[in-house]
């Protein structure tokens, strides 16, 4: 008999499992249109992206030596994260972080940062 906690967790996993599929449906060509609506923030992309601010500054605006990325395009960020993940691009620590995300999650994170700076343009 599963405990209440297990049921809660199972429900959540099922829920999260449905998200990447819907994101895959977002073709590259519709990105710009999607992005222009700042109100349409993908909540999962947002909560994943919040983690980045701890080292890179709020919204990617760094005040110190760690590279910032505010204003970089989602395409650039997605490619950079995938290169860190594969090891194609050298890093001291980013490879270790990027390996923690699926390609879909990397896409969601990159798209979120796109909405952050386009809405401030």
């Amino acid at each position: 008999m599963p405990s209440k906690m297990q049921i809660i967790l199972t429900a959540c996993v099922v829920l999260s499992g449905t998200l990447p599929a819907s994101m895959e449906a977002v073709a590259a060509g519709t990105r710009a249109a999607k992005r222009s609506k700042a109100a349409d923030v993908d909540p999962r992309g947002q909560v994943l992206a919040f983690s980045c601010a701890g080292c890179h500054g709020t919204d990617g605006k760094s005040v110190g030596i760690i590279p910032g990325f505010y204003g970089k395009s989602p395409e650039y960020l997605e490619a950079a994260l995938k290169d860190f993940k594969s090891g194609a691009r050298f890093s001291s620590i980013m490879g270790r972080h990027a390996k923690g995300y699926s390609d879909e999650e990397i896409h969601q994170i990159a798209e979120y940062f796109g909405t952050v700076w386009t809405k401030n343009k």
């Binding site: 959540c12 701890g54 972080h97």
Partner: peptide, 11 residues
Amino acid sequence: KQPVSPSLVNT
């Protein structure tokens, strides 16, 4: 609304 499944990070 229900919360989304998060990721958490430590550095």
